[in-house]
Amino acid sequence: MTSDMTARMLRLLSLLQTRREWSGADLAERLDVTVRTVRRDIDRLRELGYPVDSARGHAGGYRLTSGTDLPPLLLDDDEAVAIAVALRTAAGGLTGIEETALRALAKLEQVLPRRLRGQVTALQTSLAGITWEERRPRADPALLAVLAVACRDHEIITFDYTTRHGTATRRRVEPCHLVDSGGLWYLLAHDIDKNDWRLFRLDRTTGATPTGRRVPPRPVPGDDPAAFVAGRLSAAPTRYRAVATVHAPAERIRARTRGLATRLKPIDDHTCRVDASDDYLPRIAQTLAGLDADYTLDADPEVIDHLRHAAHRTLHATNGPLTDPDGRPPDGR
């Protein structure tokens, strides 16, 4: 009897951790008990230190709230392994979180069962990462946390935002989703003043302040936030235009490159178009070099000049004229 009650309370705690709010009836149905039993189990969790809040009435329910101390979290085996491995690599796109992640990992590994410790060790010794020189700014974990809570609670938030042209403005938005795109974090939100969907780069966002005002969830056009963001990014204006008509199938180019998403469009079975436009000239050159296929280029003069200078530097470094694979100069002489 005691083991049944313990298992039921652990299941109850697990449910409370997966959703912001549960009605008593929903919990009773999930646990296959009465609503009265749910109330007693909630009281037992409170006695153990879990801050469970409740609201009476038709729309009432139960939810875990923040307390003075963080109570124990209930994790199944897969969740524990996933968190332990993720903590090892948590600093990949963030800054200022490395030491905190290692402290959390040490605490978790102390309580991991022996059977899971072996899995975590195997994964950690099999994985390796390479740290490259960062050209893009890294996201602030504190800002990410504030925006994530606002997205979850559908709470209106204000912040200072600097546009790509350097103009600073104060924004008031309904946050929807956080999206990571190639190392850059974006907030997808509905701008209240402009009455339209907007994307905000987190490295240009400061002073995020929750207003305390919650609104009903606003559906994203197309019901796919990632696809919506990808479409907006591909259509966003860039400083330099560079569009390549590539003489290779789109599937081949997509397999050889990463991060092109909606910027790659098939023309026919043997040709595709790649929009390599960007604010950063070396990144355009990198994208074009990664195509590994012949192409014709429609680009701004600044792009052409940069590519020509880069080609001349490469030729100079080889200490000889450029030749084709048969050893002949490119003009065929």
Results as ranks from 00 to 15, higher is better:
Leu233Ala: 11
Val52Arg: 03
Asp4Gly: 14
Ala276Tyr: 04
Pro210Lys: 00
Arg218Gln: 12
Thr245Asp: 11
Leu297Ile: 10
Thr257Trp: 07
Gly182Pro: 07
Gly231Val: 08
Asp278Gln: 05
Asp223Pro: 02
Gly96Arg: 02
Met9Lys: 11
Pro282Ser: 04
Asp4Arg: 14
Ser14Lys: 13
Arg114Gly: 08
Arg20His: 09
Leu102Trp: 06
Asp41Gln: 08
Asp224His: 08
Leu116Arg: 04
Ser66Glu: 13
Tyr50Arg: 07
Gly207Met: 06
Gly67Ser: 12
Pro113Gln: 04
Pro237Asp: 01
Trp185Cys: 10
Arg63Asp: 00
Asp326Trp: 04
Thr167Asn: 14
Pro249Phe: 00
Pro210Thr: 03
Thr121Cys: 06
His309Lys: 14
Asp32Thr: 13
Tyr186His: 15
Leu202Thr: 14
Glu133Pro: 13
Arg88Thr: 08
Thr318Gly: 04
Ala122His: 11
Pro217Met: 04
Gly290Arg: 12
Ile267Trp: 01
Val274Pro: 08
Thr89Leu: 10
Gly129Met: 05
Pro225Lys: 06
Asp224Cys: 07
Trp197Glu: 03
Arg40Ala: 12
Leu233Ser: 07
Ser277Leu: 09
Pro137Lys: 02
Thr318Asp: 01
Asp77Pro: 02
Glu79Trp: 03
Pro141Trp: 01
Gly92Asn: 11
Thr262Cys: 02
Thr206Ala: 14
Thr68Pro: 14
Val38Ile: 09
Leu112Ala: 08
Gln119Ser: 12
Val220His: 06
Val179Tyr: 10
Leu10His: 10
Ile83Tyr: 03
Leu187His: 01
Ala255Ser: 12
Asp180Ser: 14
Val149Phe: 10
Ala299His: 09
Ala189Asn: 05
Arg40Gln: 10
Pro219Asn: 05
Leu281Glu: 04
Leu74Lys: 02
Ala150Leu: 07
Asp26Ala: 15
Pro329Glu: 00
Glu174Ala: 15
His165Asp: 15
Leu27Gly: 00
Gly327Glu: 03
Ala208Asn: 01
Arg88Cys: 08
Ser54Ile: 00
Ala142Leu: 13
Gln286Ala: 14
Phe200Gln: 01
Gly327Met: 06
Gln110Gly: 08
Arg30Val: 00
His306Cys: 09
Gly231Phe: 00
Pro221Val: 02
Gly93Asn: 11
Thr34Asp: 10
Thr68Gly: 11
Thr163Trp: 01
Asp196Val: 04
Ala139Asp: 08
Val33Trp: 05
Thr205Lys: 00
Arg138Pro: 07
Glu98Gln: 09
His309Ile: 13
His247Ile: 03
Arg213Lys: 11
Met9Ala: 05
Met5Asp: 10
Leu73Ile: 12
Ala248Tyr: 00
Ile304Thr: 13
Thr162Val: 15
Asp275Cys: 01
Ala317Met: 12
Asn195Thr: 06
Arg232Ala: 15
Leu178Glu: 03
Asp32Leu: 11
Thr271Phe: 08
Gly93Val: 07
Leu31Val: 05
Asp300Phe: 06
